[in-house]
Simulated scan of single mutants.
Amino acid sequence: MALEIGLRASTWGYLFVWPNFVLEARRVLAEQDRGRYVHDDRLGYVPRPGHAEPGLTIEADGRRRTGDAAGGPPILAVGDSFTFGAEVEDGQTWPALLQQITGRRVLNGGVSGYGFDQIVLRAEALAAKDRPAAIVAAFIADDIRRTEMRRLWSADKPYFVLEDGRLALRGVPVPPRADPRTTLSFWQATLGYSYLFDFVLRRLDLLHDWFGDHVRVQAPGSGEALSCLLAGRLAALQKSAGVPVLVVAEYDPVVWDDPAFAAEQRRMTGGLLACAAKDGLATLDTFDALAATGRPRGLYVTWHMSEAGNRLVAGLIAAKLDAMLAEKPR
Rank of each mutant, 00 (worst) to 15 (best):
A2D: 03
L3V: 15
R27W: 08
L29V: 06
H39Q: 14
H39M: 05
D41N: 03
R42D: 10
R42M: 15
R42I: 10
L56G: 01
A60H: 14
G62S: 00
T66K: 00
G67H: 08
A69K: 05
A70C: 13
G71T: 04
P73W: 04
F84Q: 02
D90K: 03
Q92D: 10
P95M: 06
I101V: 14
R104P: 10
G110P: 02
V111N: 06
G113H: 12
I119Q: 03
I119H: 09
V136W: 08
A138R: 04
D143L: 02
T147L: 14
R150N: 15
R151M: 14
W153H: 15
S154D: 15
K157L: 10
E163R: 13
G165F: 09
A168H: 13
P180T: 09
L184S: 05
S185P: 05
G192L: 05
S194F: 02
Y195T: 04
L196V: 01
R203F: 10
R203W: 12
D209I: 02
F211I: 02
R216N: 08
V217L: 04
Q218M: 11
A219N: 04
L229P: 06
A231M: 06
G232F: 07
A235E: 06
D252K: 11
A262D: 15
T269Y: 06
A277F: 10
A277R: 04
G280I: 05
T283I: 12
L290Q: 11
L299N: 06
T302G: 02
G309T: 05
A319E: 15
D322S: 13
A326S: 12
